[in-house]
Design a protein around this nucleic acid. Structure first.
Length: 512
RNA sequence: GGCGAGGUAGCCAAGUGGUCAGGCAUCGGUUUGCAAAACCGCUAUACGCCGGUUCGAAUCCGGUCCUCGCCUCCA
């Protein structure tokens, strides 16, 4: 069985995924749910999704954990401002996140743990770290107690981000906190007074610190030393560095927290990192207002996961913002669905038939196999989705070529029947590759309905009106009144609607 | 200052020590009532800059310029 190779941030090299008894654990650092997810959150969810699909297609038993951080100071602040309770806010945002990721075709994780439901595990882990001498309790002036992790007690600190403890003190802005014994130490537990949001613990009421939840939840659901831990590049330091310190300090001698650390690059908007202050912040709902979710997915797959991906925006005359590169990706998804639909029109395969393929059809089998292999080996090689998409493109081209060939030779019944053989092979191949990529998750009819409706809405058109004009044009064509038919078509084209005349009638579509 | 990513044809984007990435756009063709879609073909002497290694480098080495990110919450 081929084993996927991934770039491990910890060793800065390509390594085979570590499998234990046919099992693989994948932990994805999910979002802190204080707001709707942004475009970058989508990318971070998509990367492990591709990995999990690939691993499962190899027959491996994958436990996929994607956490929801629903306890955090940002959530508390937002809740205060909007007059709701923190868990009400984060619960709602978590649902939004889950719904949007599902729309983007991301697999449902095996487990989607929340911090608020893992407080006992977090408290137990903190206790273990204290016992090992790597954390200490500090009493604050208001009577509450914090627990801090002692960075200097963990000799491997900095191994993931390649930072040296002593260099961290220079230049960096480390908040002075008189209660910590070392400015580098970070909170495992933050004390809270009786009227504040919190849970009881051996150190009094409080809330978990930022990093401890991932250590507790990955430990609970995957155990120590699981296969792959994923997240955005910006989590390398301090989040993942601290996770490693906590988990490994809690269980000295039990090896690394995770075998492989996989980090995805940023999604930049107009060449810069998204940030609210720059005003280039793009949320997933912003994208889906304008593009089909599968188009967005295709777009995210056009760049290698570790490379930054550029999301360019264009502001229309009416002030609306569009994403030209996602539009382009969406046109490729149109092509995917229209090709699959065409392929379905080929003669149905009858299994008992044994036909010697005509010479013209022979190359199809070979190139189909080659392209499936190209797609698979590129994904096995550090999830190279752009190359896999190129291979998929070749398959789609072959499928159209085959359909064109059948059309050209339609008077030759033996040939038409023979077409079913490569047609079936191609259909299977396309489904296999799109399965790895999480594309083609609807039927062509569903996709057409969905995009027609959404694109019509976006342009302020009604599908009934369009259908009416198309019908009118068909009547004109039947009467061979081409001047009128063309005028109607031009009118539709001005609305952004293109009409395709086929033997079975006119089909219309709205451009992405 | 420390750590890191990247600079590839008009644009997006892979890859690699020695005939092809791929997509978009453009142009020509097949097809069509004309189109659209689809397919075929053409196109750019592509690899930031300067040196070096080599029979041969965009690919390896040295230097250099530029862009971006992390080091503080961030996917």
């Amino acid at each position: 069985m081929p084993i996927p190779k991934l770039y491990n941030t910890l060793t800065r090299s390509l390594e085979s995924v570590v499998i234990r008894n046919g099992k693989v654990g994948v932990y994805c650092c999910g979002p802190t749910v204080y707001d709707v997810p942004h475009a970058g959150n989508a990318r971070a969810a998509l990367v492990p999704d591709i990995l999990v699909r690939l691993l499962r297609s190899l027959g491996l038993d994958v436990t996929y954990v994607r956490n929801i951080t629903d306890v955090d100071d940002k959530i508390l602040d937002r809740a205060r401002k909007s007059g709701t309770s923190p868990l009400e806010l984060s619960g709602g945002m978590a649902k939004v996140y889950q719904d949007l990721m599902a729309q983007l075709g991301c697999l449902q994780p095996t487990v989607e743990p929340k911090v608020s439901e893992n407080i006992a595990e977090i408290v137990a882990l903190i206790g273990q770290i204290i016992e090992r001498g790597s954390a200490y309790v500090v009493e604050r002036s208001n009577g509450t107690r914090d627990v801090y992790f002692s960075v200097r007690s963990f000799s491997d600190y900095g191994k993931l981000s390649r930072r040296k403890i002593d260099e961290l003190r220079v230049g960096a802005r480390i908040e002075r906190d008189e209660e910590k014994s070392d400015p580098l130490d970070f909170a495992l537990w933050k004390g809270a007074s009786a009227d504040e949001w919190g849970w009881d613990s051996p150190w009094g009421r409080g809330r978990p610190g930022w990093h401890i939840e991932c250590s507790a939840m990955s430990g609970r659901y995957l155990g120590h030393g699981f296969s792959v831990h994923t997240g955005g590049m910006d989590l390398i330091f301090p989040h993942h560095e601290n996770e490693i310190a906590q988990s490994e300090a809690a269980q000295p001698g039990s090896g690394p927290l995770a075998q492989c650390w996989l980090h995805n690059g940023f999604l930049n908007v107009d060449k810069e990192k998204m940030s609210k202050s720059l005003g280039n912040f793009v949320t997933v709902p912003d994208v889906l207002k304008r593009n089909d979710p599968e188009g967005f997915r295709w777009f995210l797959l056009t760049a290698h996961y570790r490379a930054p991906i550029q999301l360019d925006t264009e502001t229309l005359a009416d002030g609306r913002v569009t994403f030209p590169s996602i539009d382009e990706a969406e046109r490729r998804v149109d092509y995917l669905y229209s090709t699959v639909e065409r392929l379905a029109e080929l003669p149905a395969r009858s299994s008992e038939q044994v036909i010697t393929l005509p010479k013209e059809l022979q190359p199809f089998t070979r190139s189909t196999t080659d392209n499936v292999q190209a797609a698979e080996s590129s994904l096995l090689d550090d999830l190279n989705t752009p190359v896999a998409l190129a291979a998929l493109g070749e398959l789609l081209k072959s499928a159209n070529e085959l359909c064109d060939l059948k059309l050209k030779r339609r008077k030759d019944p033996a040939f038409v029947r023979a077409v079913e053989i490569p047609g079936f092979t191609l259909d299977t191949a396309i489904r296999q590759v799109t399965g790895w990529l999480g594309l083609l998750q609807s039927s062509p009819a569903e996709y057409r309905e969905r995009t027609r409706r959404n694109r019509a809405d976006r342009r302020g058109l009604s599908t009934d009106t369009i259908q009416g004009m198309v019908n009118e044009r068909e009547t004109a064509r039947r009467e061979r009144d081409f001047a009128r038919a063309d005028a109607l078509r031009d009118g539709l084209l001005n609305l952004g609607v293109s009409v395709k005349d086929t033997p079975s009638g006119s089909v219309w579509s709205i451009g992405a």
